Simulated scan of single mutants.
Amino acid sequence: MDRISVKHNKFSIRQRFRNTGTAGLISDLLNPLFLPPVVIALLAILVELPLRSIAWITAAALIFYTIIPLSASLYLLKTKQISSIDLPERKSRNQLFLLSLGCSLFAFTIYTVANTHIIIPIIALIFLINAGIGYGINFWWKISMHSASGSSAGAIFLFFSQQEVLPASFATTILPLLILLLLLPLIIWARYRLKIHTWTELLAGAAAGFLLTIIELTMLTVIW
Rank of each mutant, 00 (worst) to 15 (best):
G21A: 08
R52N: 15
F210C: 10
Q95C: 13
L51G: 15
A107I: 04
V47G: 08
F34R: 05
G209C: 06
S53L: 11
L62V: 15
L33F: 13
N31S: 14
P185S: 03
Q95W: 10
I82P: 07
S169Q: 00
N130Y: 02
I67P: 11
T173N: 12
L203D: 09
Q95M: 12
A44F: 01
I137R: 04
F127A: 06
Y135C: 12
M219F: 15
E201W: 05
A44D: 04
F97H: 00
L30W: 05
F11C: 06
A131L: 12
F64M: 10
T218M: 11
P32D: 03
R90T: 05
N115E: 12
D28N: 14
L183E: 05
L74S: 05
R18N: 11
F210A: 13
P37R: 03
L194M: 08
N130E: 15
F159E: 02
N9A: 07
L202W: 01
W189D: 02
F97Y: 04
P176C: 07
I156M: 00
L180V: 01
Y65N: 14
A204Y: 01
R90S: 07
E216S: 12
S27Q: 04
L62E: 14
N94E: 13
G154P: 07
T58G: 13
R90I: 04
E201Q: 14
R193C: 11
L220V: 08
L30V: 09
S12R: 07
I129L: 10
A153H: 00
P69G: 06
S161A: 14
K195M: 09
R14C: 08
R52A: 14
S5Q: 09
I129D: 03
L98T: 07
M1V: 14
A60T: 13
L77R: 02
I67S: 10
E48L: 14
R3L: 15
W224H: 11
F108T: 01
A206R: 00
K80W: 07
S71L: 15
L180N: 00
A61Y: 02
I188T: 06
Y192T: 10
N130W: 03
F108A: 05
D28W: 10
S27E: 05
R193K: 11
F127C: 06
G154R: 00
I13S: 07
L74W: 01
R3W: 09
K91M: 11
F139Q: 08
E164P: 07
V113D: 09
P167K: 01
R93Y: 02
L180I: 02
K91G: 09
G154F: 00
I223V: 15
L202R: 04
L178R: 01
T116M: 06
A61H: 05
G102W: 00
I223Y: 06
I133P: 11
L175K: 00
D2G: 12
K91H: 13
A208I: 15
K91S: 12
A155F: 01
L33E: 10
E201T: 00
L183C: 10
N138F: 05
L186T: 02
Y192F: 07
I214M: 10
G205Q: 07
S84W: 01
H8G: 08
A153K: 01
I137N: 07
L184Q: 03
W141F: 14
S92E: 15
L74N: 03
K80P: 08
H117F: 07
L181H: 00
P167D: 01
K195S: 10
I122F: 04
F127V: 04
